[in-house]
């Protein structure tokens, strides 16, 4: 008998069967646009300035862009969809009446997001490899790091979405957390270029840690201990987020 968590994953995949074409298309188109838009055009200016030493701007931002895309896919899948499964479709209310535990429900939905993020990142890696932006075989681990970041993003948002009664808060989360993170957490330029006072904000964000690891992987550089530290920090977000999500789901569904 399949584990009940997998039955929840299966439900998500059944729904995804309707929309996968669109999302696969965008996971191919997005990296190409990024490569052309930022890497080649903006990159030609940056490279002319010579600020990054011998590294081309495209190669510099690709690992960051993969991580940032992972975060945004995770945000998209864990915000409105989760809230609507409480408020409008009432999917979770139906699930909790079956012999599923709260952990199965949260776990199954997170597994689905993990699959989405890992597959989108794998496509991103493949396409940027074609453009010659990857310099190490370690790049093959990037989708897994992106997956970890996806969980680190989605789990706490699950907890948040489970407490909302009206939508309207997600745009705020997007404007004041998600977008600033993608701009200032080391995706487009080194955090060291930020004013000293702002740097800690980048350092606490899960995105920066994932960007650092992804960049080490695509360049094949970096020491083991920082990498373990970054991964450990992301894992903390996953575990803490999962714990909070379980709490919020339980509060909402079992009263």
């Amino acid at each position: 008998m399949a584990h009940p968590t997998l039955a929840v994953l299966e439900f998500n995949l059944e729904g995804y069967r309707r929309t996968w074409r669109g999302s696969v298309l965008s996971s191919f188109v997005l990296p190409i646009l990024f490569v052309i838009g930022f890497g080649l055009s903006v990159g030609s200016f940056v490279d002319a300035g010579g600020r990054l030493g011998g590294v081309s701007y495209l190669d510099y931002i690709v690992p960051g862009m993969i991580a940032s895309t992972a975060m945004q896919v995770a945000f998209g899948e864990s915000s409105w969809p989760v809230m609507s499964k409480f408020l409008w479709i009432r999917t979770y209310h139906a699930m909790v009446a079956a012999p599923l535990r709260i952990a199965d429900i949260v776990g199954g939905d997170l597994l689905f997001i993990l699959l989405r993020v890992v597959s989108a990142s794998a496509v991103f890696v493949a396409i940027t490899a074609i453009f010659g932006a990857l310099h190490s075989a370690w790049a093959i681990t990037v989708p897994l790091v992106a997956g970890l970041l996806g969980l680190a993003t989605a789990a706490p948002i699950f907890a948040y979405a489970a407490r909302l009664e009206v939508d309207g808060y997600f745009p705020l989360l997007q404007r004041f957390v998600v977008i600033p993170m993608s701009l200032f957490a080391g995706v487009f330029f080194p955090v060291e270029s930020l004013p000293v006072g702002l740097r800690p904000l980048a350092y606490v964000s899960p995105l920066w840690h994932a960007v650092e690891v992804c960049r080490s992987a695509t360049f094949g550089t970096g020491d083991i201990y920082p990498i373990v530290g970054h991964l450990g920090y992301l894992a903390l977000w996953v575990v803490g987020g999962f714990w909070l999500a379980r709490l919020s789901f339980r509060r909402r569904l079992i009263g």
Binding site: F11, E14, G15, R18, I89, R90, T91, H93, A94, A97
Partner: peptide, 12 residues
């Protein structure tokens, strides 16, 4: 369990 409010998935 047949709940008072529908909880079917409208897109499946």
């Amino acid at each position: 369990v047949c709940p008072q409010q529908d909880s079917l998935d409208p897109e499946l």
